[in-house]
Simulated scan of single mutants.
Amino acid sequence: MTAWRGQLKIDQIFAMENFSKPERIDWLKQEANHYLKKMEASQGDVLAERSGPVLSAANLEQFFRHKERSEKICQILQYLLSFMTHIPENDEIGDEPVNPAEQFREFVRYEADLLLEEDVKNAIFQETNHKEQFAGGNVWDYQERIISMNNELQKQVAQGKNNAVATISSLCQVLEQLCRFWFEVRRHDIRRTRRGDIFLYTLARIVQSRCRQTEKS
């Protein structure tokens, strides 16, 4: 990904038009799969790094919180990669024990609700308070924005319950908005932006486009 660094904003660097060719799509899927495997393999390493003779309750809680969040990102990426190949429709899902659109909804809802977690809010406040253009009221400005954004995203997460394709498309829009928010928080600095957010953003945008094509066909 370092080859595309420049002065453009992240959402411009990873714009849809940059992935119009099949070879670009293949490259993106390969990179996302590689990132996914690294995330899955790193879970045990994190615990090993933090483990001492006695693992404190605080460290244990932190580990499991990090593990749960990482697993949710992995699950969302897995679904997005699957949707890149095929968008399931209502008649395909039928009486399957797991409805992919509804399970995807729960994973995305989890991501939206992370905005309300204290450690996540603190991370946002720390990032934004480093911006020169913000004054002391910055924390309260973002507090209101976070609450408002979460409310709006949760409304959007609940949409499209009777149509699998529409549900997936709407949920991808939620992911896109979340990623844009994090890009802004990190000032569109690609060196400080999580690779996972870049993959989520790019894949979600492409899946949205494929959902529109599926609905038209």
Results as ranks from 00 to 15, higher is better:
Thr2Gly: 13
Arg5Met: 12
Gln7Ser: 09
Leu8Met: 02
Gln12Ala: 02
Met16Phe: 12
Met16Gly: 00
Glu17Trp: 12
Gln30Trp: 09
Glu31Met: 11
Ala32Arg: 01
Asn33Leu: 12
Asn33Thr: 05
Leu36Trp: 02
Lys38Val: 11
Met39Trp: 00
Ala41Tyr: 12
Ala41Val: 15
Ser42Glu: 15
Gly44His: 14
Val46Gly: 00
Arg50Phe: 15
Pro53Ile: 13
Ser56Asp: 09
Ala57Tyr: 09
Asn59Lys: 14
Arg65Asn: 07
Lys67Trp: 09
Lys67Pro: 01
Ser70Phe: 03
Ile73His: 12
Leu80Gly: 06
Asp91Ala: 15
Asp95Thr: 14
Asp95Val: 08
Glu96Gln: 07
Val98Thr: 11
Val98Gln: 11
Asn99Phe: 07
Asn99Met: 04
Pro100Met: 03
Gln103Phe: 14
Phe104Trp: 11
Tyr110Ile: 01
Leu114Trp: 11
Glu118Asp: 04
Val120Lys: 10
Val120Gly: 05
Asn122Trp: 04
Ala123Pro: 01
Phe125Lys: 03
Thr128Pro: 08
Asn129Thr: 01
Lys131Asn: 15
Lys131Thr: 14
Ala135Met: 07
Ala135Arg: 00
Asp141His: 12
Ser148Pro: 05
Gln154Phe: 11
Val157Gly: 02
Gln159Met: 07
Gln159Tyr: 03
Gly160Gln: 02
Lys161Trp: 15
Thr167Gly: 07
Thr167Ile: 13
Ile168Gln: 05
Ser169Ala: 10
Ser170Glu: 13
Ser170His: 13
Ser170Val: 09
Leu175Ala: 05
Leu178Pro: 00
Leu178Ile: 09
Arg187Thr: 15
His188Ser: 06
Arg192Lys: 10
Arg194Glu: 15
Thr202Val: 05
Leu203Gln: 04
Ala204Pro: 08
Ala204Gln: 02
Arg205Ile: 05
Ile206Asp: 03
Gln208Lys: 13
Gln208Trp: 10
Ser209Phe: 12
Arg212Phe: 03
Gln213Cys: 14
Thr214Leu: 13
